[in-house]
Design a protein around this nucleic acid. Structure first.
Length: 687
DNA sequence: ATTAGGG
DNA sequence: CCCTAAT
């Protein structure tokens, strides 16, 4: 019995640090890939390690920045609004809000982390830039997004903590600026800092729950408390109520009802695509597919397969990209923006070029630069985002599943969403703000007015939006990113030759000829281990339109366009040998058995593949040697192919009864040292 | 899920 | 290899 748990719209049971994810490629999988859900080493682990590295990198700067320590106060300590305000104020006063977001500085792109921490949003009205006011919206989104990214970098450290995030954005055309507390929305005015020449008012708006990204039924524990953040270890304790077989999770319904709900929910189904992994498996699966005949892992207790969790052929590729996706994304975006102004549709960063003013550049390069003092300082609206809501989650696990497995299941769902290149959507009064070029004020997003109806949400990368990024500057992102196809190819060409794993592919070692021995001595695992460390080198950030397409807005149509063929993997002589052997014994109509007998561990060879190969083998055997291409197949094998083909053609009718091996098969194969005589073949054909 | 065949 | 119809 499988229990389905609908977590409702905007499930945001836990506050999640954002984690970008490699795109999930949509691809059908061959029958032999029944173990799709197997060997999936956690995206999470990768994530963790990644985060760890980033953390290390940033350790220096982080520690040197005292304010950093206060960045994320422990949730458990119940930091109140006032505390948060107090924390932020001084920073703002310095004109450098630790909580602020900004654009990566072109000059300091090298340090991804650093740029994230020290760049500062510049969306001042009255700028000379041609883009005046035109990209503020983008910036707001960008800010939110980068905040989320920052979260990602720190989630390890703060996995058990939580605090509001303060995203600061220029208010731009904001009308008034009174500091009212409105429906939990706190707007605070303070004297402009650091030489603001014009509007000295800076507003700090702590959008509390109202700013949660998305409609949010929250996971609550038995005490009714919204449980914390990350799920890795401190997964929120859901309150279970077992109604018969229907296990439900407790929710908190804020009663919020965004109009876009339906829209997003629909989408969620799209990006809740077929591919969701058990965190622990990606790595395993990843390599087992190509470098070895991976042992079947039975640890997957969740019946994800029951959840239309079709194993996808390209999962490994996606995985490859995963580890470095964040890194590259950050770096490359910086590069991208260096040329293209504005912010990407996916909420990237604003570029230096947005402002052609050298002064600005300097200013951002060095926040403490005196030049900063001469720059017009605008009022800013600081958004304190308490949490990011995650769109609908749909979990399905057997009712016999353990709580732990449920957690993992949810984890998968969350990761599936977060690992994608999500965008930040802005909802105002329930309606999605479509025009990214409008300023905050134009949009009516002033602290005073509509902030209480403002909310952000994470949304899947838009298939339509992404390509646009490339249109503007094909040489940037598009250039560096490559179709997933490349990943696959790269992986294979990097030393992963067929001969490398031929031996391990075949189920029956006995079928392997001596020529393989040297290879056989190398355990598949060692191969994997050896390759793993360098695998990163093969990683290509799949940010191309194709890659992003795996999160189709329109599931069927769009996805189909990007389905790609499997990489071609010519059969080696060894494989042919095994195939011939099996067919000789089993006949030509039992490809599944052939598969099981000789290629069970060769996941990339489906029974259809074997059938096809046999077809071509027969054809090859019939044509003249001159017409043959590819790795030459020993004539001896081709002879056996013809013999077997002829034999089984004759005995097709009898297949139903006893599956009798082809007469003389054993003898021939056993005596394979001696090439079967033409007479022998003839006789067999005659039979 | 398999098998058989055409593309 | 892919795609499909038919089992």
């Amino acid at each position: 019995m499988v229990t389905k748990k609908r977590l409702g719209h905007g499930f945001n049971g836990f506050r999640v640090p954002f984690v970008p994810r490699r795109p999930r490629s949509a691809r059908r999988i061959g029958p032999s890939k029944k173990s799709v859900e197997e060997g999936q080493t956690c995206a999470f682990e990768l994530l963790a390690s990644l985060a760890g590295k980033l953390l290390e990198e940033s350790e220096g700067s982080a520690s040197s920045n005292a304010s950093e320590a206060n960045h994320v106060p422990p949730l458990s300590q119940g930091v109140n609004e006032q505390d948060r305000q107090n924390e932020v104020k001084p920073l703002i006063a310095e004109g450098i809000s630790a909580e602020s977001i900004f654009m990566p500085d072109v000059a300091s792109q090298n340090s991804t982390k650093k740029s994230l921490q020290h760049a500062k949003t510049d969306c001042a009205p009255g700028r000379n830039s041609v883009n005046d006011n035109s990209d503020c919206w983008e910036k707001v989104k960008a800010n939110v997004k980068s905040e989320v990214l920052e979260w990602e970098n720190k989630f390890e450290r703060y996995s058990n903590n939580y605090s509001n995030k303060l995203v600061e954005a220029p208010e731009n055309l904001r009308g008034s600026s009174d500091g009212n507390v409105k429906n939990g929305l706190r707007c605070e005015h303070k004297a402009g800092s650091s030489g603001s020449q014009r509007s000295n008012m800076a507003e700090k708006c702590s959008l509390k729950d109202q700013l949660e990204l998305y409609n949010s039924p929250a996971l609550i524990d038995s005490n009714g408390n919204v449980k914390s953040p990350y799920c890795r270890e401190s997964f929120p304790s859901a309150s279970f109520s077992n109604r018969g077989n229907d296990i439900r999770l407790g929710f908190r319904d804020d009663g919020e009802n965004f109009l876009s709900c339906n829209e997003v929910c629909t989408k969620s189904k799209g990006f809740r695509s077929p591919q969701r992994f058990a965190p622990q498996r990606i790595r395993k699966q990843l390599f087992s597919k190509y470098w070895k005949a991976g042992p079947k892992l039975k640890e997957c207790e969740l019946s994800r397969s029951d959840v239309e969790l079709k194993p996808l052929y390209h999962k490994r590729k996606a995985s490859y990209g995963f580890e470095t996706s964040l890194h590259k994304t950050l770096v490359k975006r910086g590069k991208f923006f260096d040329r293209a102004s504005g912010v990407t549709s996916d909420g990237g960063f604003s570029s230096e070029s947005v402002s052609n003013s050298p002064e600005k550049g300097i200013d951002r390069d060095n926040p403490n630069s005196s030049s900063k003092l001469h720059l017009p300082k605008d009022s800013h609206v600081a958004f304190s985002i308490k949490s990011l809501r995650i769109p609908e989650l749909y979990i399905e696990v057997p009712e016999t599943a353990t709580v732990g497995s449920l957690k993992r299941a949810i984890m998968e769902e969350v990761m599936a969403i977060l690992e994608d290149s999500v965008h930040v959507g802005v909802l105002l009064q329930g309606e999605k703000v479509q025009d990214d070029n409008r300023t905050l004020v134009q949009t009516g997003l002033s602290c005073k007015e509509n902030l209480d109806t403002l909310s952000f949400m994470l949304e899947p990368s838009s298939l339509l939006a992404s390509p646009a990024v490339c249109v503007g500057d094909p040489s940037s992102q598009c250039e560096t990113s490559q179709p997933t196809r490349s990943l696959e190819t790269a992986a294979i060409e990097s030393g992963n030759t067929d001969t490398l794993h031929d031996s391990s592919l075949l189920t029956n070692p006995g079928n392997i000829i001596e020529s393989n021995h040297d290879i056989t001595t190398s355990p598949a695992d060692s191969i994997v281990d050896k390759i793993t460390p360098d695998s990163k080198a093969l990683v290509v950030v799949p940010t191309s339109p194709e890659a992003l397409a795996v999160v189709p807005v329109t599931p069927k149509t769009k996805r189909a366009e990007f389905v790609q063929r499997r990489t071609r993997r010519p059969f080696s002589v060894t494989e042919v040998e095994a195939l011939v052997q099996a067919v000789e014994e089993l006949g030509t109509g039992r490809w599944r058995d052939v598969k099981l007998r000789a290629f069970e561990n060769a996941d990339h060879r489906t029974y259809v593949d074997l059938k096809d190969k046999w077809k071509t083998l027969v054809h090859t055997a019939r044509i003249s040697p001159q017409q043959r291409r590819g790795e030459p197949v020993p004539q001896e094998l081709l002879d056996r192919v013809l013999a077997a083909h002829g034999y089984w053609s004759q005995h097709q009718a009898k297949q139903n009864g006893k599956h009798q091996a082809m007469p003389g098969t054993l003898k021939i194969s056993e005596a394979s040292v001696e090439r079967p005589s033409v007479e022998c073949v003839q006789s067999l054909v005659m039979v």
